[in-house]
Design a protein around this nucleic acid. Structure first.
Lengths: 221, 221
DNA sequence: CCGTCATTCAATAGAATAATTGAATGACGG
DNA sequence: CCGTCATTCAATTATTCTATTGAATGACGG
């Protein structure tokens, strides 16, 4: 073991944080925790993974200071340490988006048919909502909607989008949002709505980014 | 191999980037590359590591889109892909600084004696330089100074600081900067200058951050 | 065309990480 | 106090990562 100067010791700590971000499952955990705090069991169900595996990944994230855990009776609720985690995630994503050819390829293959849909910015949406010009739908599952959503949004989980679209006013534009910038749900919702003749667009990013931008969040009683 | 949906495929790419940041040596490479582009050999010398090892780490960084390589005759010059890398590094650092107790400990143990020195902000420094009130020194090695420095700064590598301090005007405040926020050199320079009676402070962050903020950089012919 | 030199590749051994399984812990409810 | 249930721990195996060594590549200079 070589003698470490303070800088190297610090860099080892920074590396612990980066390493904790360096696994797709853990990134997905962060995305879900960004919606609100969750028990181990709930996260395991969302990700379709064994509980012990999720528990260990969560502990890795906790050791890196990325999430914090709070015991509540039988359950342990995990949540993101703070918004700096989201911004670290966003920075890493930005590097990948700019410089990895594989990211380009995936986006082209899977999202390209939909890239003519210019996302609505948060400012734009606020203006549209203020003027009552659009219907805003939150396509996340009901439990995530319940943990906080954009004021005025109605919850239409992805599975119910087809049924809901028949009742919606066809002359009114629809804006959809979900968990975050690369969450497929809002892409799919917009595609489904457009396929039955609705005018629909995505909101840029998702709920966590809305909240991190300091915009109001509605929480059901 | 399980079937991957597009989101998981993207998250694997993001994880590649984060994983590449997840090693202390690679973080140190990024710090050095942030000063300017470098050959493999030069980086190996700076880090005191075998060339083959550095070469492999650089290739890991390149696969993650973090650095780019350009052949120039016998030499291959590596440089940072762009400023998004610096901001990713900064985000990771920020998470570690906020949430890792070990980072606190290291900073307390190694930098605490100097924490009464409020760093000078970039704006403050610009005003002070405009009014000619301070002497600005760049305590990095001469080769890094040559790759770009703050206009008006004079190069006083750390080893020469003691000798230089005798010639410096004792009535004039000195501001020192180096490679970045946790580069020890400017801390040590300030400590050395204060120990011989000078009034000295650190600039916040270092050269790469100055440049990333869009401020002017002086490059010798 | 050949030697030199910077860099990369290939192969190895050792260390760390990931997923799985089953057992242990710790808190609630009767 | 006992059974139940959410979570964590411990142990195992397979995989990946790291550092080192020595050989291969590729470009320059004579």
């Amino acid at each position: 073991m070589s003698i470490r100067n303070p800088k190297q010791a610090l860099y080892e700590q920074f590396a612990i944080v980066a390493k904790a971000l360096g696994h797709p499952l853990r990134l997905e955990l962060i995305e879900h925790l960004a919606q609100g705090s969750r028990s181990v069991e709930a996260l395991a169900a969302k990700l379709g993974q064994p509980i012990a595996n999720i528990s260990q990944h969560l502990q890795a994230l906790r050791r890196a200071g990325i999430v914090s855990a709070e015991r509540d009776g039988k359950y342990v609720h995990y949540s993101l340490a703070d918004d700096s985690v989201l911004s670290a995630f966003a920075s890493v994503r930005s590097v990948a988006e700019r410089h990895l050819a594989e990211v380009d390829r995936i986006v082209r293959d899977c999202f390209d048919a939909r890239d003519d849909i210019q996302p609505v910015t948060r400012e734009e949406l606020q203006a549209l909502m203020r003027d009552g010009l659009v219907t805003l739908i939150d396509v996340r599952p009901a439990d995530e909607f319940a943990l906080g959503h954009v004021p005025g949004a109605i919850n239409v989980p992805l599975g119910e989008i087809k049924a809901w679209s028949h009742c919606a006013d066809p002359g009114r534009e629809i804006v959809a949002y979900c968990r975050g910038p690369w969450c497929v749900m809002s892409f799919e919702a917009v595609a489904a709505l457009r396929s039955v003749g609705h005018s629909a667009r995505r909101l840029e990013d998702g709920m966590p980014e809305w909240k991190a931008a300091g915009l109001p969040v509605e929480m059901p009683a």
